[in-house]
Design a protein around this nucleic acid. Structure first.
Lengths: 214, 214
DNA sequence: AAACGCTTTATTGTATACAAAATAATCACT
DNA sequence: AGTGATTATTTTGTATACAATAAAGCGTTT
């Protein structure tokens, strides 16, 4: 695992908390490499939007409620668009991938592992793989690239929320709707279902935030 | 001007042509700095999508017709979305900026400078400033950031085309429509006018490409 | 005691040497 | 002469020393 991947993981899992200062020197200590690869990793993380550049160095980025809302909204726009393209371009192989990814998602969410952190990670990963399968089928690498930039929100913001069984099953169901629309080459429906799916995720996150802060 | 900006300029203006190999050593010669800032600039240009990473080093990126089409399409989506947000959030100051930017655009296109390269650059710059004014008014830094990634197409692809007076005036007119819709807080109209405007740009580029290649 | 300027320290920017790895070139062998 | 393995060369990855600059600390002045 590269330094970049390790730091990314640390930011996403919350090991570095928003506002934490990240100095090159300290990171060389932590990862036992020189400043050169650290600098490279920091630059990439800046691009990902996970850290904020200061006049001197970086801090782990903090996300306001407004940030989260805006990020989810534009993500919904882009993934909806990708889904509509997929409905046009999908091959049989693409459909197989989506079915397989959603089946894997289902078996993970029905595992009933008492919300252990590994279980949550597994669910998030399977969910991600489903979305990737849809995005890939769009055959549009540029859109794919933009979406990647917009799904990097730290785990804190989408982990401990929607892990009510009912909501997981709702996600599974919407995945099915999305696949069906793409199969039927109904691009308007694919787009709208994807929009809806992501907005539901957004709302859960925002509700949870409301509960925490207020 | 930083090394990054110089290299970016060189790529956009076509000094480095698609497929040209970019080695760190050669660039240290050219810019008379060490490899460290060169590496930093290359990484940034990779994020911008202006260069393609190889197993060893980079090449100046080449854009296929398909690439151009897909990039313009998703740009239209994003800028249309930004325009619709602007219609909701715009302040009087935002409107002033848009009017001013479009007025500057108009006086530049009516200068009749016989399509000198500086004139073309000036037109592109004024056009860019208008778009920035609209995007800014959206108050959505994340969308703004995504759009930046998608307007970096080298100059070659959008310079010598739409410099027919008639088409420039068409652009000016659509700018006016966009501003009016934003002023009226008619977000659907703002979005659709912006879509249309960018698609027109896309089509001119694609037509020109058709003419060139055969 | 607050504010200003100076000195010190911390931290990044740059250059460069060396290690590792990929590509190119060479030579031996068939 | 063509092919494959081996060596040489090019090129990037990494470490580190030094320079430049920003931030912090400190004392002096008002």
């Amino acid at each position: 695992m590269s330094v970049y991947e390790k730091m990314r993981q640390a930011l996403i899992t919350g090991k570095y908390k928003p506002g934490d200062r990240l100095t090159e020197e300290a990171l060389t200590e932590e990862f036992q490499v020189s400043r050169t690869p650290i600098r490279s990793a920091l630059k990439q993380l800046e691009f990902d939007g996970l850290i904020t550049p200061l006049r001197r160095g970086y801090v782990a980025r903090s996300f306001s409620r407004k940030d989260i809302r805006q990020i989810y909204d534009v993500r919904s726009l882009l993934e909806g668009y990708a889904a509509s393209l997929s409905a046009i371009h999908r091959t049989d192989e693409d459909l197989d991938n989506m079915y397989a990814a959603n089946a894997a998602f289902y078996s993970t969410i029905t595992e009933q592992e008492d919300n252990k952190i590994e279980h949550i990670q597994a669910i998030l990963q399977k969910n991600h793989q489903f979305h990737q399968a849809v995005i890939r089928a769009s055959q549009d690498p540029h859109t794919e690239d933009l979406i990647r930039k917009v799904v990097v929100l730290p785990l804190v913001f989408h982990s401990f929320f929607w892990f009510q069984q009912r909501e997981l099953e709702q996600s599974f169901h919407l995945h099915e709707v999305i696949i069906a629309a793409i199969k039927d080459q109904d691009s308007a429906r694919a787009r709208s279902a994807m929009h809806e799916h992501i907005y539901q995720g957004r709302d859960r996150v925002l509700e949870q935030l409301e509960r925490e802060k207020g």
